[in-house]
């Protein structure tokens, strides 16, 4: 079930588009619903979004599998999205990713045993002059070093 709160949030997006174009809100609707369901999308939540937006289930499914920001398996309370593309790579991102993996005892794509943190290697996040960088949930952290990473990660609770 999509909560009233989520429906209200989705309605804010629907209002941005012309009448009968509520399907334009689908990307945000999926994000909102995902946030309410432990950050995972399932077949049933996708169908609920389809019903709410009066879209065919398959159309929502297509969107939900095309874009990168939707999850289908468990992620941590904090998702660390580490950029490994060229500017970050040139500035040592690969070694820092290894350090983070060792520190947390997980590989990229996995979640820590306590469910707190998951690490993901991602493509360019558009902060190349702050390389190396990662994103934790919504926030960017730039000019990373081993010390800086340790401090940031140790503060995640």
């Amino acid at each position: 079930m999509i909560s009233i709160r989520a429906k209200n949030q989705i309605d804010v997006w629907i209002a941005k588009y012309p009448k009968d174009r509520q399907s334009s809100a689908v990307m945000q609707a999926l994000k909102i619903v995902q946030a309410e369901n432990e950050n995972i999308l399932s077949a049933s939540t996708i169908q609920e979004v389809a019903d709410y937006l009066d879209m065919p289930g398959i159309a929502v499914q297509e969107v939900a599998t095309f874009y990168e920001n939707y999850n289908y398996k468990k992620v941590g309370k904090y998702v660390i999205r580490f950029c490994h593309n060229i500017s970050c790579m040139l500035n040592g991102a690969d070694d820092l990713i290894k350090h983070l993996e060792n520190k947390l005892g997980v590989k990229t794509g996995e979640v820590t045993l306590d469910g707190l943190i998951s690490v993901k290697k991602v493509e360019c996040l558009g902060a190349c002059v702050g390389a190396p960088m990662f994103q934790i949930n919504e926030k960017y952290f730039e000019n990373l070093t081993i010390d800086k990473i340790d401090k940031i990660v140790d503060n995640l609770k």
């Binding site: 060229i86 360019c124 702050g130």
Partner: peptide, 11 residues
């Protein structure tokens, strides 16, 4: 929708 490796001005 900025995201080509190296590009970070619009942000």
């Amino acid at each position: 929708d900025e995201g080509e490796p190296g590009t970070c001005k619009d942000r």
